[in-house]
């Protein structure tokens, strides 16, 4: 049932695993963040239990905008040109508050207990120009 003698000291082959993990990390970073460009044009999408409740283009905001999410728990999301943050939440984990302000494409704020996802999308799927 057991292998003869387990190797307890690092071997040269271990570095292959390290390398593989690094490559995977860089690879996923490129796939996820690569197409996002400079992040001048950020579209914020707030979903609550799978439903989109708000879609806002950050640069189109002239003043701070507040979005309240009401479910088992209540969250207050603040959107401004400089970024997005959760200002209040009575969820048990408080992770969304710990996240602080996010402002770059690809970033997100997640509240698992209330299933809220606030995601920032960059150029690739957002508009380049706002008209009107």
């Amino acid at each position: 049932m057991q292998s003869s003698s387990p190797k307890l000291r690092p071997t040269a082959w271990d570095s292959l695993i390290v390398l593989a993990v690094i490559v995977l990390a860089i690879g996923t970073a490129i796939v996820f963040y690569g197409g996002l460009g400079g992040g001048d044009h950020i579209t914020v999408t707030i979903t609550h239990r799978g439903e989109t409740v708000e879609k806002v283009m950050l640069e189109a905001l002239n003043e701070e905008k507040t979005v309240t999410i009401d479910g088992t728990y209540q969250l207050t999301v603040v959107l401004s040109r400089d970024g997005v943050w959760v200002s209040e939440s009575n969820c048990p984990s408080q992770d969304c508050l710990h996240t602080g302000t996010v402002s770059r494409a690809g970033q997100s704020i997640v509240c698992l207990p209330e299933q809220v996802v606030i995601r920032l999308d960059g150029k690739s799927d957002g508009p380049d120009i706002i008209l009107g």
Binding site: I22, A25, G50, L112, V117
Partner: peptide
């Protein structure tokens, strides 16, 4: 799976590190 949203994939590179 829980959130039905791929936004969290952005944390993968950091977590792998």
């Amino acid at each position: 799976i829980t959130l039905g949203d791929t936004a969290v994939l952005g944390y993968l590179p950091i977590l792998l590190g």
